[in-house]
């Protein structure tokens, strides 16, 4: 659906986006991840036709951003970072204005406004000036703005930044709702968000793509470091430690005992290219410990992110 080829953007001497190639499929929810100043917003601004790339090109369907930016703008709904809406307008007036610009007929407009008001929870604030809205509400108006023409592609720049946890959940819920039928590109620097909302994650650092894949596949890249969590009954800490440390590949054990001191919880730090879970299980079977929980925790996305984006 969206093809990005050798996309490059210079601000004077500074290279904000450097030779990015990306192919976004229809119906995908793509998370653009990266530290501040990595080039996420710049990429999105080029995709939405706000400015042209220095070199390279973007094709949306069969349209090129250089020649058919108007057609592309019709296909894309865009919510810029922190929803910079006109302060002095009422929510209704603003959405009405957007609907007019998006070319909705008066009949379509009313139906669409009703639908969006229900989806984004705007029914009670339609008559309020935008300047009086809280950040979360403004963000919702921004999403309604982006969805006005029922676009095939939705581009959201940090849709949850600066919101409180409840609002974040609400906005994510809206994104999930929309994501069932639309292609969504969203940028964020919050990892859990990418994990919660996206099918696919692209990590950008210093204008370059450093990782691309599902959150699952990203976890499996890099060093094979992971944690295994165990919960045992009828086990003695010292005994357990002695038995388990003998296994090759376990580099550390951090035990903790539950409040009623019956359950022993262990976190095993593992560093191995092979799966050592079967070895651990065999070991436990030989003893009379009772295993009540046993699972592997993937390498946290935070670690991968830090590894990929640290300054060289």
């Amino acid at each position: 659906m969206i093809h990005v080829e050798n996309l490059t953007k210079y601000y004077n001497e500074f290279c904000a986006v450097d030779q990015i190639n990306l192919h976004i499929r229809k119906g995908e929810i793509l998370g653009l991840l990266g530290p501040n100043g990595a080039g996420k917003t710049t990429t999105l601004r080029m995709l939405t036709g706000f400015f042209l790339p220095t070199s390279g090109n973007i094709h949306v369907k069969n349209y090129s951003i250089r020649e058919h930016s108007l057609e592309i703008k019709k296909l894309i709904g865009y919510l810029p970072e922190s929803a910079p809406l006109y302060h002095n307008m009422l929510v209704y007036d603003y959405l009405d204005y957007v609907a007019n610009i998006r070319g909705l007929t008066p009949d379509q407009k009313i139906a669409r406004l009703k639908k969006l008001a229900a989806l984004c929870g705007l029914n009670n604030i339609m008559h309020k000036p935008i300047s009086e809205l809280s950040k979360g509400l403004k963000q919702r108006v921004g999403i309604a703005h982006a969805m006005m023409s029922d676009p095939e592609i939705l581009v959201l720049d940090e849709p949850t930044s600066g919101l409180d946890p409840n609002q974040i959940v609400e906005i994510r819920e809206i994104i999930r709702q929309i994501g069932k039928e639309k292609t969504i590109v969203l940028s964020t620097h919050i990892l859990s968000e990418a994990e919660a909302a996206c099918d696919r994650v692209v990590i950008i650092n210093q204008g370059k793509i450093v990782a691309d894949g599902s959150t699952e596949s990203l976890r499996q890249t890099g060093n094979r470091e992971y944690d295994i969590r165990l919960s045992l009954l009828n086990a003695n800490i010292d005994h357990v430690q002695k038995q388990l440390m003998a296994i090759d590949g376990i580099s550390g054990i951090s035990p903790s005992v539950s409040d009623d001191s019956t359950v022993l919880n262990l976190t095993l730090a593992c560093k191995s290219d092979d799966d050592i879970r079967s070895t651990i299980y065999q070991k436990i079977k030989e003893t009379d410990w009772i295993l009540i929980d046993f699972h592997q925790e993937g390498k946290s996305l935070e670690n991968i992110f830090r590894e990929l984006t640290k300054e060289n």
């Binding site: 939405t48 036709g49 865009y78 070319g103």
Partner: peptide
């Protein structure tokens, strides 16, 4: 808001 304006058609 110029960004919003110019990314509409």
């Amino acid at each position: 808001s110029y960004e919003i304006l110019l990314t509409m058609p």
